[in-house]
């Protein structure tokens, strides 16, 4: 059994080992501290010349990393909290994401910005957000979100070494402590890849031996775990059988795995931890509506309510989507118990 934290740490270590162009930058990433969430633990001891601790300077380090990527290195930037990624929007959006295209494909910028998003830890309004939607739809920028399905370490490794564009790699804080669930570890479920994406695949999860699903749940990141719990409850407590699609690449969006599932079930519920308006789910639903038309009988979205995220535990729970919200929305859009 491997935790997501260990898998990501292993992915970084493998990338640093396999390619001497890989350089890691971030705040407080040196041992013995090893980063605020310990994803980089041990790396500065093994690769002291290529693990660089930075001043508190997200805009600066991301801009530097774009320059390093432009001239032959493969930098990885750790932004300690996803909330701070707003400070790096300009170097990401106006420099890293644009250079290859606006320089007429004469250059590449293989830069990975890793950052932990998400709440449920009581960190309050500026250390709990899921703001990856700010980076969706930016031409030239890929957004990938790890989950505990598949192999998050391999996902990170591919982001660093198997593609050449700037990429935001989203890690939800609560994923770090979860065990990775691969096909072998999932005794009650069937997990299989869905769609044709090779680098950053989508996964389809169903209850083993269940009747055909009447609802598609679509999500990414840590919400994949809450959606998995909802899928179990719906199946075993209410006899509503669903199919869960977990994307790892959020942008550019390849909606095919979701479309394929929703075209069979006729119902779609998107689930995300960020706020509702103009979110990932809105884009997914728009794509499904465009493609499926009346074959999509009903649809809904589960997301955070639109207030800043409170520090108090009780308030935070009411702000962020929970399993019960998924159950309620699933019933609301008319998912029917198996006849």
């Amino acid at each position: 059994m491997t935790s997501v934290l260990d898998a990501l740490n292993n992915g970084l270590q493998r990338a640093l080992t396999d390619d001497s162009r890989v350089v890691l930058l971030g705040e407080d990433i040196l041992d013995p501290y090893g980063g605020a969430f310990k994803v980089t633990r041990g790396l500065s001891t093994v690769f002291p010349e290529r693990v660089l601790t930075t001043p508190v300077s997200e805009a600066g380090m991301t801009g530097l990393a774009a320059g390093m990527a432009l001239r032959g290195l493969r930098p990885i930037v750790e932004i300690m909290f996803g909330d701070f990624s707003t400070l790096a929007v300009d170097p990401l959006v106006n420099t890293a994401a644009k250079l290859r295209w606006m320089y007429n494909d004469q250059v590449s910028v293989p830069l990975v910005v890793r950052t932990p998003m998400g709440g449920r830890r009581g960190y309050g309004p500026t250390h709990s957000q899921s703001i990856e939607k700010l980076f969706l739809g930016v031409p030239g920028l890929r957004v990938v979100a790890a989950s505990h399905f598949g192999d998050p370490g391999e996902l990170l490794y591919r982001a660093i070494l198997r593609q050449d564009d700037p990429l935001v790699f989203v890690e939800h804080k609560l994923l770090y402590g979860l065990q990775v669930i691969d096909a072998a570890a999932a005794s009650d479920f069937e997990i299989e890849r869905s769609g044709s994406a090779e680098l950053f695949p989508a996964y389809r999860l169903t209850v083993r031996g269940a009747p055909p699903p009447t609802l598609t749940l679509a999500t990414y990141g840590y919400m994949a775990e809450l959606a998995r719990q909802a899928l179990v409850k719906l199946a075993f407590e209410r006899e509503i059988f669903t199919e869960l699609i977990v994307l790892t690449q959020l942008a550019p969006l390849d909606a095919a795995p979701i479309l394929e599932s929703a075209s069979r079930t006729g119902r779609l519920l998107t689930i995300e931890e960020g706020t509702l308006s103009a979110g990932w789910g809105a884009e997914v639903l728009a794509r499904c509506s465009e493609s499926l038309g009346s074959r999509l009988a009903a649809a809904g979205r589960v997301a955070a309510i639109e207030t800043p995220i409170p520090a108090a535990a009780g308030l935070e729970r009411r702000t962020l989507p929970e399993v019960d919200d998924i159950l309620r929305e699933a019933e609301k859009i008319g998912a029917q118990p198996h006849a």
Partner: peptide, 22 residues
């Protein structure tokens, strides 16, 4: 290399210089 966002080129150039040195 040139870019039209004022100030953005300073970190970019610093990263370029660092990469060359490394």
């Amino acid at each position: 290399y040139s870019n039209g966002i004022l100030g953005s080129t300073l970190p970019l150039a610093t990263g370029i210089a660092l990469a060359e040195k490394m």
